[in-house]
């Protein structure tokens, strides 16, 4: 076993894993709670970086790279363009403090109950490990199944992306001619 040849390798792996989990959770908290939207976008970026680390630990380096490429590189940058073209900062507190506490408490209660319920369901579910693996889950296996089993979905998603690009252009232009 070569991993044990270097001292503290297991602790290093555990440390990087804890770092990935903490990054994901902290990014999600920033994205959900920050007052200024641009900080929320930055929190989403941090969250996606941590998520890429988690994908790596789930033995999918391909998805880790795709997460960074698509989310951090494309989705968050596009949202930042949207932030620059509008004025999305949360408006000053117009609601009464009583209402703010009431609605904040209610939504906190709802999300806590969802968190508790889903976690309980996940942890106490009777999950069974598979008897054997059919493929090794490598990038080559992903490519083969994308072009054989899932070729129809692959073509459909390219069509969806094309329609989305055209629709985005049309909708954005319509707003311009009206104003």
């Amino acid at each position: 076993m070569t991993a044990a040849a270097f001292p503290f390798t297991d602790n290093l792996v555990a440390g990087v894993f804890i770092l990935a989990v903490t990054t994901t959770v902290a990014g999600a908290l920033i994205a959900a709670l920050s007052t200024r939207i641009i900080r929320g976008v930055a929190g989403l970026m941090v969250c996606c970086l941590g998520l890429a680390g988690l994908y790596y630990f789930l033995r999918s380096p391909f998805l880790a790279l795709m997460e960074i490429l698509i989310y951090v590189g494309a989705v968050c940058v596009t949202i930042i363009f949207g932030v620059m073209l509008s004025e999305p900062d949360e408006p000053a507190k117009t609601e009464k403090p009583v209402h703010a506490i009431l609605w904040g408490g209610a939504s906190l209660l709802v999300s806590l109950m969802i968190f508790w319920g889903v976690s309980r369901l996940s942890l106490h579910g009777a999950w069974t490990a598979p008897a054997a693996r059919v493929t090794d889950g490598s990038i080559k296996a992903i490519g083969v199944s994308l072009l054989t089993s899932y070729s129809m979905a692959f073509e459909l998603i390219s069509l969806v992306l094309l329609v989305a690009i055209l629709g985005a252009l049309v909708i954005a232009r319509m707003g311009r001619t009206k104003a």
């Binding site: 999600a28 939504s107 996940s122």
Partner: peptide
Amino acid sequence: VVAAFLLAAGIYG
């Protein structure tokens, strides 16, 4: 549990 936390944070937001 991390996935459940992300779902809860998303719904709260």
